[in-house]
Design a protein around this nucleic acid. Sequence first.
DNA 1: CTTGACCTTACAGCCACTGGAAGGTTTACA
DNA 2: TGTAAACCTTCCAGTGGCTGTAAGGTCAAG
Lengths: 134, 134
Amino acid sequence: MNISQAAQESGLSAKTIRYYEEIQLIAPAARGENGYRQYDRKAVEELRFLAHARDVGFDLEESRQLLELQRDRSRQSRHARDLVMEKSQKLQQRIEQLVAMQAELLAMASRCLGDEGPDCAILENLAAGQEGGE
Amino acid sequence: MNISQAAQESGLSAKTIRYYEEIQLIAPAARGENGYRQYDRKAVEELRFLAHARDVGFDLEESRQLLELQRDRSRQSRHARDLVMEKSQKLQQRIEQLVAMQAELLAMASRCLGDEGPDCAILENLAAGQEGGE
DNA sequence: CTTGACCTTACAGCCACTGGAAGGTTTACA
DNA sequence: TGTAAACCTTCCAGTGGCTGTAAGGTCAAG
């Protein structure tokens, strides 16, 4: 299977697959006689694993660790669980941050007429010297 | 006022202030005899405005637009409101995405024993070929 | 035999900074 | 007066996770 097929089946782009190979996140793909990269079912499974790990919020380093666990037959599921719980907490914090930002945006908008005039609670608010947010 | 004082009062780092000047987000600062950048109250206000805009989620281009509105005496508050509402919607989508990711993480973790054994619902889950998420 | 769709490498660019090097200036203190 | 620390300056490189583009090789269809 060539790279664009592997891309389609894994949900990654061909570019991204080459990039993952370059940074040694995955093993170098086998090559056909023409020099094209060749992917088998197992390789595509790893790509899909990575795509999914990225989807739920892991960065490449964490995805690498998860993939190593996946490959390791003598792994301890505790390690995977730890990674997930840590990520979950980070995500929780990020969500709370965004919710706060969102609340402030809506609060500002609610006090702005949004008409043809120059008076604007939003701009006043941004100009005001309050801390907080992101 | 020197740059580090301006940084402290605005909530930006000195590095960031220089960067904002470089990309022409703010006007070049006045310079003292020694070549040091000098900031007055008005300059600090603009910096604080930018810091706050970034805090609530605007990117630099949007912050630039907001700052231009702030400077423009003949502005229409509608423009500011539009920017805020658009950002709010984007933020809303992002929050929903993160919440979904978070839910999937917790769902995976709940089915993983997290012990010394290799069996792990998390890894099985990531390996399974489901779409969705981010 | 050409066209177009694929593949290859290599390098630049994106965002919004941050870090560090190498040097000039100012301030505090012994 | 000397000097050390704390400022300031510019310039360049690096971050993450790709994406875009250029310049070229390969392959299948008509």
